[in-house]
């Protein structure tokens, strides 16, 4: 009985957390851009910087150089440097780019960070095994907002 109540409580909390967010399948894209915040909570640029630089989170620096993150070693050179991205793109465009870059750049090598379906042989993270349940997006809705807030600070000199 106790277990049931606990599970129920957990489910309610989970549900509540999801309720304020737009699920990956419900994001509205207009020409690649996403106007509405995915969470309604303003992004935290400092946490966004962490997500962009950390291997365990967005690992954006695997492919992009970011001068503002000069302390992060081994920045890749697959995509363009993100310096000035906040001047080149609006907030809505940046949100769309991070959530699903393929709608802005057709066939882009950049992964879609807020998508959960349409993959060929998706795995259970980096285990090489089949997933044991529905996929979760590469970044959470709030992490996307945080990354967008950080990118918006990358202005041209």
């Amino acid at each position: 009985m106790k277990t049931t109540i606990l599970t129920l409580a957990a489910a309610l909390i989970g549900g509540a957390a999801w309720a304020g967010e737009t699920a990956p399948g419900d994001v509205v894209y207009a020409d690649g851009a996403v106007e509405a915040s995915l969470t309604g909570t303003p992004g935290d640029a400092a946490n966004g910087a962490m997500v962009v630089g950390s291997k365990k989170h967005g690992n954006c620096v695997a492919c992009h150089q970011v001068s503002a993150l000069a302390d992060v070693p081994f920045q890749g050179e697959i995509g363009p440097a993100l310096d000035g991205a906040g001047s080149r793109w609006s907030e809505a465009e940046l949100r769309g780019l991070v959530a699903n870059a393929k709608l802005t750049f057709e066939g882009s090598m950049m992964p879609s960070f807020y998508r959960v379906d349409g993959y060929v042989r998706p795995g259970n993270a980096y285990t090489g095994k089949a997933p044991d349940g529905p996929l979760t997006p590469l970044l959470s809705a709030q992490e996307i907002e945080d990354v967008v807030a950080f990118l918006a600070t990358l202005k041209d000199e």
Partner: peptide
């Protein structure tokens, strides 16, 4: 090959 496919978050 297996390692490279695993690194794409795929089922190898």
């Amino acid at each position: 090959f297996k390692g490279c496919v695993r690194d794409t978050r795929a089922e190898t």
